[in-house]
């Protein structure tokens, strides 16, 4: 990264730390995560029994939302403020601009996740802390994937309002309705869909992949089986591949689109 891109990373981070929506949602996440952790401590619950799964559910709701909000104005915001041309008139490549915007916002997201999960770890009992720390990296990956999607959406549209609507729709679709859709599919087909197909459909959604991976880690395959969730998580290589794809493909697509799209 050159000087301009590094300056942009710094600027993006600075700007995001002053975004009230990001601050409010991050604060709420931290509050709820602390609450879960304190409750678990008072009830002397182990991390794997309740605290972990509860935090996974919280993270899978809040983190994609914060990430999408963080990403939604990355390019279209500059376009609407008439500063995109100004930014690109600096000696910087367009892919560097996208990368810098992504990295700067990812650092802000990392701060939000660190705050939320950090609070949970802080309030957890000593024996639960190590288990809860395992949540941090997958949560960051989840956030990075949704941030990348947000950045892509912001590159595709010409108005910030459109981008905001699209990120809300994306959040509902991938975080809320996706699993319901899969359930609906199983009901409609009377359970005739092959478990492999369901597995694939769950894991191609970053929110599904995160939940599956984390539930597997906290509850173990036997518990999932017992709950009637016959979904096998992908192997390590496939998991790494899927996360890499979800994080890099939207950012790379954004760079290509910004290269080809007319700058007004």
């Amino acid at each position: 990264m050159g000087r301009v891109a590094l300056a942009l990373v710094h600027q993006e981070l600075l700007e995001r730390t002053r975004d009230r929506w990001v601050l409010v949602i991050s604060g709420l996440f931290a509050l709820l995560a602390s609450g879960v952790s304190l409750y678990g401590r008072s009830e002397e619950l182990t991390a794997t029994r309740l605290i972990g799964p509860s935090l996974v559910t919280l993270a899978s709701l809040f983190v994609p939302l914060v990430a999408l909000i963080l990403g939604h104005d990355a390019v279209v915001g500059e376009r609407e403020r008439n500063t995109l041309g100004l930014l690109l008139s600096l000696p910087v490549r367009r892919f560097e601009v996208i990368l810098a915007k992504f990295v700067g916002r990812l650092l802000a997201l990392g701060g939000a996740i660190g705050l939320g999960l950090g609070a949970a770890v802080l309030f957890a009992s000593a024996e639960n802390r190590a288990v809860l720390l395992q949540l941090i990296l997958p949560t960051l990956l989840l956030g990075a994937a949704f941030l990348s999607i947000g950045v892509l959406l912001s590159t595709l549209v010409s108005r910030q309002l459109t981008s905001a609507s699209l990120v809300v729709a994306t959040w509902f679709l991938l975080v809320f309705f996706y699993d319901l859709g899969l359930l609906g599919l199983m009901v409609v087909t009377d359970g005739q869909v092959a478990p492999e197909t369901i597995s694939t459909l769950v894991t191609v959604n970053p929110a599904g992949l995160f939940r599956l991976e984390m539930m597997q880690r906290f509850a173990g395959p036997d518990v999932l089986e017992g709950l009637g969730v016959g979904v096998a998580p992908p192997g390590s290589a496939a998991t790494i591949g899927l996360w890499t794809l979800w994080i890099l493909a939207p950012v790379a697509s954004s760079s290509l689109i910004l290269t080809w799209k007319k700058v007004t």
């Binding site: 710094h10 600075l14 403020r81 600096l90």
Partner: peptide
């Protein structure tokens, strides 16, 4: 031109100075 609304004038100029 509009610039980022949640930054102050000095921060806007500092970015371009760094860049």
């Amino acid at each position: 031109v509009a610039f980022a609304e949640n930054l102050d004038g000095e921060q806007v100029l500092r970015f371009f100075a760094r860049a």
